[in-house]
Design a protein around this nucleic acid. Structure first.
Length: 263
DNA sequence: CTAGATGTTAAGGT
DNA sequence: CACCTTAACATCTA
């Protein structure tokens, strides 16, 4: 479930497991997830290095392993990381294993193989190349307002546009809209300043709380939409069945009672 | 068996 | 340029 809170959690996990361990190599089991680098070159680059710094921008995790050398990870629609003892069997769908001198390995897991791994000279260069917007947890209220103001299209599409704000996907966009009591098809042009403030505050609160709960929906407040975000789900506020509508080509869940369309 | 699932990108169009 | 839609990617599950 890799949106911002999930990736934040993976980064924290690596910080307390694989970080600062001496790397002895990398085992690529599915080269499909590699971008711009071969398994052989990746292993050679990493050998003898350590992941010395870990940072995140939106849904991308960036790991420093040398001067001007960073590894980036993106998880696509499904993904995880797992640190395990190498004499044990690797987790299912482990596509790349980073091997350490202590006998452990870090698995990059990608069931649907939509995840990607590559290298970049620095987070700054990487962000520029991908045109990533500010991280959703970092963006200031002023910048947020400017990003949404005077534009066309659906609010939800803008929230999910990684070049505008990085980190929000379909699931958390629904949660933010639910908290803001806005219909998923609300367009940017009908938003008032008060709405933008409300959306901003909901966004920060939700992403922070979700990251704190390690992106585990079972630990989310029961007032949230996500645990009910499934067929037959009910609105935690009023108990009525949630409805769905397509926005941006993706399914949106919402409460028809509290998220009415203004226009 | 079929449709849809947390994402991104390309290609085409308005 | 800004924005929209559709398809594709590979795999699993309802």
């Amino acid at each position: 479930m890799p949106e911002l809170p999930d990736v934040e959690h993976y980064g924290n996990y690596i910080k307390r497991t694989a970080a600062r361990k001496k790397i002895t190599g990398a085992e690529t089991r599915n080269a499909k997830v590699l971008e711009g680098v071969s398994g052989k070159v990746l292993a050679k680059k990493l050998k003898g290095k350590k992941f010395s710094r870990i940072t995140r921008r939106g849904k991308y995790l960036l790991l420093k392993f040398a001067e001007e050398e960073w590894l980036y990870m993106h998880f696509g629609m499904t993904g995880d990381v797992a640190y395990f003892k190498k004499d044990k069997e690797a987790p299912k769908y482990a596509r790349v294993l980073f091997l350490f001198a202590n006998g452990y390995a870090l698995a990059f897991i990608s069931q649907r193989m939509l995840g990607r791994i590559g290298t970049a000279p620095s987070p700054g260069e990487f962000i520029k190349k991908r045109s990533l917007g500010p991280d959703a947890l970092d963006v200031s209220p002023g910048k947020f307002k400017k990003t949404l103001e005077g534009r066309k299209g659906a609010l939800k599409s803008a929230l999910m546009d990684q070049e505008k704000i990085a980190g929000i996907g379909n699931i958390y966009a629904d949660e933010i809209l639910y908290a803001s009591r806005l219909h998923p098809k609300t367009s940017l042009s009908e938003l008032k300043d008060g709405d933008i403030k409300k959306i901003f505050r909901s966004m920060k609160r939700i992403l922070e709380k979700a990251a704190e709960k390690k992106a585990d929906p079972e630990k989310f407040p029961r007032s949230w939409l996500i645990p009910q975000r499934k067929k037959g789900g009910k609105c935690p506020r009023c108990g009525n069945p949630l409805r769905t509508v397509k926005v941006n080509g993706r399914t949106s869940y919402f409460c028809p009672k509290s998220q009415k369309r203004k226009k």
